[in-house]
Design a protein around this nucleic acid. Structure first.
Length: 201
DNA sequence: ATACCGATGGACT
DNA sequence: GTCCATCGGTATA
């Protein structure tokens, strides 16, 4: 991985299912608070915008204060609070205005595990699950709408993950649209959350 | 004004 | 496996 490597706008504008698959193996590099930590994304979920009933972009109100980042340019962070407790981070993708985004659900730590462990108060796993991932990387609503091509949170190309290592399942923790095969994870890697169904559809 | 319900994680059995 | 803290966003009145 080179320091100058970037995902292109063309890549980020591709349909959300393709981007969710291709973001497996990508790296998230955090410099939040001036301390560096990084890891490889090993689990993602696609949220398909206004036509996906499970997506935060799918509301009667249309664009709201909460979801407006999803309708902006791709490559930005959509950060939301879950259950009033956790922060979760998405990469906005797809053509402008569709409200598509990829939820980062699992990270395999590569660097700065001590920092992550501090932020996680010593709890394990470090970054398996969207709330844990965000906490380990120091992600909060301060990064809402942040351009992920820049510090303090950067998304950069990393490993190539062959199709034979990719498992596709339904999404976790939702009811409507849960059966859509929109979850992707890398088989056998630490950092993959196991909240239920890790099986093929 | 207020009711409902999570894109969850941690503690516990 | 089960239970539940905790609160913002949306819908409804």
């Amino acid at each position: 991985m080179e320091a100058t490597a970037r995902f292109t706008e063309d890549f980020l504008r591709r349909p959300v299912l393709e981007v969710a698959r291709e973001l497996l193996g990508a790296c998230l590099v955090s410099d939040v608070g001036g301390v560096r930590c990084a890891g490889v994304i090993v689990e993602t979920e696609a949220y398909g915008g206004i036509d996906d009933p499970a997506s935060h972009a799918c509301t009667r109100a249309g664009v709201t204060v909460r979801n407006r980042a999803m309708f902006g340019p791709p490559g930005r962070a959509y950060v939301y609070r879950s259950y009033g407790i956790h922060w979760c981070v998405n990469v906005v993708t797809g053509p402008d205005g569709l409200g598509q985004a990829v939820l980062c659900r699992g990270l395999m730590p590569l660097e700065g595990e001590e920092v992550m462990s501090e932020r996680r108060a010593g709890r394990r796993p470090l970054a398996a699950g969207p709330g844990r991932l965000a906490q380990a990387l120091g992600i909060t609503d301060v990064l809402y709408g942040h351009d992920l091509s820049e510090p303090p949170l950067a998304l950069v190309p990393g490993w190539r993950v062959p199709d034979t290592d990719v498992v596709v399942t339904g999404r976790i923790g939702i009811r409507v649209g849960a059966d859509r095969p929109y979850r992707f994870y890398v088989r056998g890697r630490p950092g993959v959350s196991r909240a239920g169904r890790n099986t093929n559809l």
